Simulated assay, not measured.
Amino acid sequence: MTEFSLFFILDLLGTIAFAISGALSAMNRRLDLFGIFIIAFVTAIGGGTLRDVLIGSTPVTWMENILYIYLIGVVTIFAIIFRSKLNHLKKSLFLFDTIGLGVFTITGVEMGVQNDLNPIISIALGAMTGTFGGVIRDILCNEIPVIFRKEIYATACIIGGLAFVILHQLAVDTDIIYIATSLTVILIRLVVVKYHISLPSFYLSSKT
């Protein structure tokens, strides 16, 4: 029987958010029904799959718990049916992508901590968990992944992961850590996009 801990609930929330993000991105690219389901699925499970493989937790989570498959399917159907309600696709995509980013970052860091990994490795694991699904989504939709653009994306994951590790070292209640650090990542992402804060980019000048 599945234990509905806060960690498990957050993992489901991240799965829902990224599934919607993937479905919206696929519809925005005018993919067919099969394409929408595939993009939603790989976006939702990409980060968690990488996390589980890296720490040697196999079979990976979605293979052991069929609930994830059902959940992704239902959420994708929901996104398709209510696509007209989810107007302003770009804003909706950003919102759900941000929620998934924040939640999956924390689940990745927590798995690193549970496996007694070095704090730096745990933070990196959190960043990869949070961003990898979006990277796959963008590549399959023929777009440059957000993580490689000027927007502060992975940096928000690193800051959130660092906050998680510090609060864990201070022996703060685990549930409080989950909520506080997830919100940290989400708020950072919202603020930097709202105020157009970005990392510097560098390029070679073309010779004429």
Rank of each mutant, 00 (worst) to 15 (best):
I166K: 01
L89S: 05
F132L: 15
H168F: 13
G134H: 01
N115R: 04
G108N: 03
I139G: 04
Y153A: 08
G130Q: 02
D97Q: 12
A154Q: 05
H168M: 08
N118G: 06
V103G: 01
K90Y: 07
T107M: 08
F164Y: 12
I106P: 07
N142H: 10
V165M: 07
I136V: 12
L95T: 09
F104G: 01
L125W: 09
E143I: 06
N142S: 11
A163M: 08
S122G: 04
S92P: 03
T131A: 13
D116A: 02
V113W: 06
K150L: 02
L140Y: 02
I99H: 03
I147F: 08
L125N: 06
C141F: 09
S122N: 10
I121P: 09
I120D: 13
Q169V: 07
A127V: 05
G102L: 03
N142T: 09
I147K: 10
I166S: 13
F132V: 08
T107G: 06
N142A: 12
I120S: 02
A127E: 11
G133N: 12
C157P: 08
D138C: 02
G133R: 09
F94P: 01
T107I: 13
K85T: 12
I99P: 10
G130M: 00
I123R: 05
G133Y: 04
K91A: 15
L89D: 15
R149T: 13
T131M: 09
A156T: 10
K91C: 09
I152T: 14
M111C: 13
K150M: 00
T131G: 13
T105H: 00
A154V: 04
D138E: 05
V109C: 06
M128H: 02
N118Q: 13
D138R: 02
L86S: 09
I123Q: 10
F164Q: 12
D173V: 05
T155E: 11
A124W: 01
C141T: 12
E151P: 14
D116K: 02
G130N: 06
L162G: 14
V113D: 01
G134W: 09
C141E: 10
V113E: 00
V135W: 10
P119W: 05
G160C: 03
P119I: 03
G130F: 11
A154Y: 07
T105S: 10
K85W: 05
F96W: 15
G126C: 11
F148W: 04
R137Y: 15
I99M: 14
E110Q: 10
P119G: 12
L170F: 08
A156P: 05
A127Y: 03
G100A: 03
G102H: 13
L93S: 11
V113H: 00
C141H: 11
L162Y: 13
Y153R: 06
I123G: 05
S84G: 06
R149K: 15
G133A: 07
Y153Q: 11
M128P: 02
T131K: 14
G126E: 12
V135L: 12
R83P: 15
G126R: 06
A154T: 00
H168P: 07
G126Q: 01
L95V: 01
H168K: 10
F148H: 13
E110V: 05
Q114E: 00
G100L: 12
F164L: 07
Q169N: 09
I106Q: 08
I123H: 04
A127D: 11
I139D: 09
Q114M: 03
D173H: 04
L117C: 04
G160Q: 07
T129P: 07
H88N: 14
I139E: 04
E151R: 08
V109L: 15
L117V: 03
L140K: 07
L140I: 08
